[in-house]
Amino acid sequence: MRTRFCNGYRSTMPEISIPRPPLTDGVVTLRLWRAADVPQRLAGYTDPQFERFSLPSAGELTEARVRAQLEHDERERLLGTKVGLAIVDAADDDRVWGGCSLYDIDLEHRRAGVGYWLAAHARGRGAATRTVGLLAQWAFAGLGLARLELTCSPENIASQRVAERAGFVREGILRSHIRFGDERRDSVLFSLLPEDSRGTE
C-alpha cells in the first residue's frame, strides 16, 4: 500500500472516496459539510441533548472552531480514518438535520464505527434510523466493510432504539469505555454485519 502525506501526516491508508451522487433515500440526504452549514452545525453542537450524550468539547464552541472542524474532517477523510457527512432534508439540502460519520475506519480488518446526531427539529421522524441505514449500505457495498459498531451511553435509550431498528445486535456493555468530562462512562455496544437482517437492504 502506498504511503501518502496529508498536511504533514503520514498515512498508509487510502483516502475514502465520497459517494457520488450523495447518499439519499428521498427523505434524508447525506452530503459533505459546507462552509454555509457552520451556524446550523454550531447550533446542533450546543443543543442540550447533544451535550448530554456526545463527547464534551474542550473549551468554548465558536463558529471559528466549527469552521476548523471542516478542515479536520477533510484531513481525516484523506487519511482514510473517518468520513463525516451532514444529514440534510432531501427536499432542501440547505436545511441541516444533523451530522453522521463512519469513524475509526480500519480497512485491514474491514470495520468502522457509526456515529450520528440530530438537531432538535429533526428528531422523532425516523431520520436517525434512515441515516444509519444509508451509512450501513454504503459501508458494506461501497467500502467492503464486514463489521460496523455503534456505541452509546446506557442512558441514551433513543440511540439504542435507533440501533435496534437499523438491525444492529446488542453485544453488551463496555465498562469504563470513554472519558466523559471528569469521569469515565460505560457504553452499550451494538454491531451490524452484512448478513444481519437489515444489513444488506
Score class of each variant (00 low, 15 high):
residue 92 D to Y: 11
residue 92 D to T: 03
residue 93 D to T: 15
residue 93 D to H: 12
residue 94 D to Y: 02
residue 95 R to Y: 04
residue 96 V to Q: 12
residue 96 V to K: 08
residue 97 W to H: 12
residue 101 S to A: 15
residue 101 S to M: 13
residue 105 I to E: 07
residue 108 E to Q: 06
residue 109 H to P: 00
residue 109 H to T: 01
residue 110 R to Q: 15
residue 111 R to E: 08
residue 111 R to K: 14
residue 115 G to T: 04
residue 115 G to K: 06
residue 115 G to D: 07
residue 117 W to Y: 15
residue 117 W to R: 07
residue 119 A to G: 15
residue 120 A to M: 02
residue 120 A to W: 00
residue 124 G to I: 10
residue 124 G to C: 13
residue 125 R to T: 05
residue 128 A to K: 05
residue 128 A to Q: 08
residue 130 R to T: 03
residue 130 R to P: 03
residue 131 T to S: 04
residue 132 V to W: 09
residue 134 L to T: 01
residue 135 L to M: 11
residue 136 A to G: 12
residue 136 A to T: 08
residue 136 A to E: 06
residue 137 Q to V: 11
residue 138 W to R: 09
residue 138 W to P: 05
residue 140 F to K: 00
residue 140 F to C: 01
residue 140 F to P: 01
residue 141 A to K: 09
residue 143 L to F: 04
residue 143 L to R: 10
residue 145 L to D: 02
residue 148 L to H: 03
residue 149 E to M: 11
residue 152 C to M: 13
residue 153 S to G: 02
residue 153 S to I: 03
residue 154 P to M: 12
residue 155 E to Q: 14
residue 156 N to A: 10
residue 156 N to S: 06
residue 160 Q to F: 00
residue 161 R to A: 15
residue 162 V to H: 06
residue 163 A to R: 11
residue 163 A to P: 07
residue 165 R to A: 15
residue 165 R to N: 14
residue 166 A to G: 11
residue 167 G to C: 13
residue 172 G to V: 09
residue 172 G to F: 13
residue 172 G to M: 11
